[in-house]
Design a protein around this nucleic acid. Structure first.
Ligand code: MN
Ligand code: MN
Ligand code: ZN
Ligand code: ZN
Lengths: 128, 128
DNA sequence: TATTAATTGCAACTAAGTTGCATTAATAAA
DNA sequence: TTTATTAATGCAACTTAGTTGCAATTAATA
């Protein structure tokens, strides 16, 4: 079924995203990978991992993109949890347990969701 | 208090955003404005209107930015309504009446929100 | 009307992402 | 194991989005 090849770049990028405590940007990945692969390859591997539903994409209110691992996307791949972006430490984290409730008019067909809240994370709000 | 000047570009851009039925991108504005002003001016006017809480910024899951008018932002300027992006007609609309309910752990301090749902809008889902 | 500082246009620049194509390498078939 | 197939990669060039510095313009105020 999956004709996706198990390359060094793919393996390493998926590991980095899975083991990071927070969502990673393309720039984060490039910094970690050094010259393991070309920056274009990072874009292409990310696209592939998205298609394979192994990671999901997050955009904050300014359009900054980060990527985080999927956990139970075998079925739906619908990410209805909230993401939090800290304006102090710039971290983006998945709050997998926080799923907003809302009701759209019947005629809307939902394919994907992107919920991002910005402010101060617990670590940074404590420092005030 | 407001030392923001009432220029032609500012007036025209605010009118366009207020009278549009959907959120507008920088490119949309540039197309409508023609050579009324430079494209850099559009960026700067948008920044000003954001600071003045007259418009708000919306990012979809791919990071595409659009702008929509604020309605009752005299007080909080907290946009907790959902935005819908249609994958067919590409429109982005404010669903001002749809405010998701959710609960963050106490330590999080919320400054702003960005909720975007993608799929098919009523107009486009009917065509199927 | 004269003064002042906000605003603008322009050119140059940076950052982010895309594309075409020749080369490399993971996988499966022989 | 060797060979064949085609996904994946590197590289260079390109596009798109947004930023910056600075001189010129102009809205607001005195
Ligand atoms: Mn997430
Ligand atoms: Mn809105
Ligand atoms: Zn933080
Ligand atoms: Zn539509």
């Amino acid at each position: 079924m999956s004709n996706s090849r198990n390359t060094i770049a793919r393996t390493e990028i998926l590991n980095l995203i899975r083991e990071a405590g927070e969502a990673l940007s393309h720039a984060d990945l490039q910094a970690s990978l050094g010259d393991l692969c070309n920056r274009v390859t990072i874009y292409r591997v990310l696209d592939r991992l998205l298609e394979e539903h192994l990671i999901h994409k997050i955009a904050d209110v300014d359009g900054n993109i980060t990527y985080a691992a999927c956990h139970d996307c075998s079925g739906r791949h619908l990410h209805n949890h909230i993401h939090f972006r800290c304006e102090e430490c710039q971290s983006v984290t998945c709050l997998n347990q926080v799923e907003p409730e809302f009701k759209l008019p019947r005629q809307y067909v939902v394919h994907s969701m992107n919920f991002t809240v910005s402010g101060l994370c617990p670590k940074c709000s404590g420092k005030r």
